[in-house]
Amino acid sequence: MNATSPSPRAIVEVGGEKPYAITIGPGLLDDGALLGAGLRGRHALLVSDGNVAPLYADRVTQALRAARPDVRIDGYFLPPGEASKTLAHFAEAIDALAATGATRDACVVALGGGVVGDLAGFVAACWMRGIDCVQIPTTLLAMVDSSVGGKTAVDLPQGKNLVGAFHPPRAVIADTEALLTLPPRELRAGLAEVVKYGAIRDAAFLDWLEDRADALLAGDDAALADAIARSCRHKAEIVERDPFERGERALLNFGHTFGHAIEAEQGFGGLNHGEAVAVGMVLAARLSARQGLAGEAEAERLAALLARFGLPVALPGGLDPAALLERMRLDKKAAADGLRFVLWDGIGAARVVAGVADEAVLAVLEK
């Protein structure tokens, strides 16, 4: 894996059996040659949602058609929000591909945040047992996390991302100018996943984030581009070595066991993903302290940084700890020997811990 300078355009290469590039920079949504490079056949389905499509769908379609006039480009647009990441909308997107007449060299183009990317990627994984997918993330969270690595899925009422597949994209194209239209809450949600990389493997990056918190919150182009590139490099290094999450990649789930349980228990209508992960990381850090792995002071430092980014750091009111525990039992990260959590030995040093006692988890939740 290698990378160029993050300004004005950074390219992070993801190696492995199916290598691809993450291109980061301004103005990429109008770069038809870049967008069209991932289209091998004559059919493409642009998947987006009701928030993003009015802003960017026409621009992307026009750029693609200018570069690839031979390609038929159809669209499928979801209602916005996690509640749309369902088997029902997956089936509708599959029907849209069928109506397009998509062949095995067709491409699904995912234009949006994590919900769009996850669902569109799963559609691409399943149509004719796998076609190309180009990820064009428009949220910070999707740029630094969900668009990279090939995890695709939809939710069930019982839990998040329970039906899915590993399906690496053909390319990831992150236009940093899209962040200018991002609501402040969504920008903050993405910063939670950025903080995660410092928490689990790069203490110096966490220092950097503390120093540049104000610039990041203000939407400073250079700071955001640097944060995105650094985060993508971390994820690329991990998924190259562990594409199917059989080892090291599990560390990327720091905070997610708690976070996914919170999202599901709230019916995917309360905290958004980044906010739930922020709370989950604080709970995981405190569980680490309770297990004697790390100090409480480090958990409080993490909580302080997340709070500075305007993120929640405490369990929302009205949630039953016992109900959350039951949600965690169905989480993909659970195993036969009991609950498994990504915990840490301190900032920058995470590990997977199996067989964590229910009582310890409940004690953290109840506190």
Rank of each mutant, 00 (worst) to 15 (best):
I262N: 03
D226T: 15
K160L: 05
R233C: 15
A264C: 04
A261K: 09
E248M: 14
E210K: 15
V239D: 01
T152R: 02
I228A: 13
L217I: 11
A276K: 01
V148D: 02
G149I: 07
C232F: 03
R185Y: 07
L251V: 13
Y197G: 00
L179V: 11
T176G: 09
V195C: 14
L182S: 14
A276H: 03
R185A: 05
A213Y: 06
R185N: 14
F166I: 04
R212D: 12
E263I: 00
L179R: 13
A204I: 08
D221L: 15
E177M: 14
A225N: 11
A227G: 10
A199Y: 08
L156M: 13
P243D: 03
R246D: 10
N253Y: 05
L180Y: 14
L187M: 10
D214K: 13
R212M: 08
G198E: 03
L179S: 12
T152F: 00
A250I: 06
C232W: 03
I200L: 06
T176N: 05
I262T: 01
G270V: 06
R201N: 11
D155I: 02
A174T: 00
G150T: 09
P184S: 00
V163E: 00
P184N: 07
I200D: 05
K196E: 04
G219V: 04
L217Q: 08
R246T: 09
E193H: 01
R233L: 15
T181F: 15
L217F: 07
T257E: 00
G255L: 09
E265L: 13
T181A: 10
D221K: 15
A276P: 04
Q266N: 14
R201Q: 14
A278Y: 00
G198Q: 04
C232K: 10
L252S: 01
D221I: 15
A218V: 03
G274D: 11
E275N: 00
L216E: 01
I200K: 03
N161F: 00
D220N: 10
L187T: 06
S147H: 09
R230Y: 06
E177A: 15
F258I: 08
A276D: 10
Q266Y: 14
V148S: 06
G247W: 09
K160W: 02
Y197L: 14
A171T: 07
L209A: 05
